[in-house]
């Protein structure tokens, strides 16, 4: 079943057309990759899909409902979650609070003024569960700012997962990671695919070819190809124009 669909998305900044015509669809339970050279509009594409910018033209649907132009918080509440390439964490507080803040059950309390944050033991346990998934459970009570770079990337993903999403968008999750950390991340995403539908922007082609079921190649603000990794590898034109000789 098609969970998430974007059709003919266009985005301009002033006179500059960044996304010319983007269409893609994500099947439920799959890992969908987005790749393309630097400046192809990958991150802008993500920003439009997750409501950071409204598109100038085109339609975005999620579970058959039109969500074009909705506000980020409305989109997030529907079960669309994302991570950021430049990390966005709550750095003054502890790791576990980063996750608790993202739990929908905590969000339901956001206008409550009669209780304390950690009053609800089930919320704490739920947050610990999420942290356990990304391997950060034993660092739950450390300050987020004190985590290592790799762990911050993991927390970034944990926060995205905590929102109890149907679909998770990961923006360059391997950016800045070493080879070993990248392998760990690959393992993590493999585990996550059982529970979530995942969309990944990636630079690291090997990483994407390893994980993705389908890949959209973006170049000059357009999807120039959408296919399985194997088929893309065989497509000489795509390989030359966007992938270089990696594939």
């Amino acid at each position: 079943m098609t969970l998430f669909k974007a059709r003919n998305i266009q985005k301009r900044f002033g006179a500059r057309v960044v996304l010319e015509n983007i269409s893609l669809s994500v099947e439920e339970g799959t890992v969908h990759g987005i790749m393309g050279p630097n400046g192809a509009g990958k991150t802008t594409c993500f920003h439009v899909l997750t409501g950071f910018y409204p598109p100038d033209d085109g339609r975005i649907t999620f579970e058959g409902h039109d969500i074009t132009g909705r506000k980020p918080h409305q989109i997030a509440r529907l079960g669309i979650s994302r991570s950021f390439q430049i990390m966005n964490l709550f750095d003054d507080t502890v790791v576990i609070e980063n996750v608790i803040l993202a739990l929908p059950d905590f969000r339901a309390l956001s206008f409550n003024v009669t209780r304390n944050v950690f009053d609800d033991i089930t919320l704490v346990d739920r947050a610990l569960e999420v942290l356990d998934r990304v391997g950060l459970a034993d660092r739950a009570w450390q300050k987020a700012a004190s985590l290592s770079y790799g762990n911050r990337r993991a927390l970034e993903i944990a926060v995205a997962l905590a929102a109890d999403p149907r679909i998770v968008f990961l923006d360059e999750p391997t950016s800045g990671l070493g080879a070993e950390a990248t392998l760990r991340l690959m393992e993590l995403i493999r585990n996550l695919r059982e529970a979530y539908t995942i969309v990944i922007i990636e630079h690291d082609m090997r990483f994407l070819f390893e994980l993705a079921d389908t890949i959209s190649v973006i170049h000059w603000g357009q999807v120039i190809a959408e296919d399985t990794p194997a088929a893309l590898r065989a497509n000489k034109w795509v390989a030359r124009s966007a992938l270089g000789d990696v594939a």
Binding site: A76, F90, T93, R107, T114, R115
Partner: peptide, 27 residues
């Protein structure tokens, strides 16, 4: 009471990172 309640923690989250707060679903 206010600053230690969920409401207070959420508004502190907004101080720390407004974008992130928006993308985990806060208005």
């Amino acid at each position: 009471r206010l600053v230690n309640a969920p409401f207070g923690r959420v508004l502190q989250a907004i101080r720390q990172n407004e974008t992130r707060a928006r993308f985990v679903g806060y208005n």
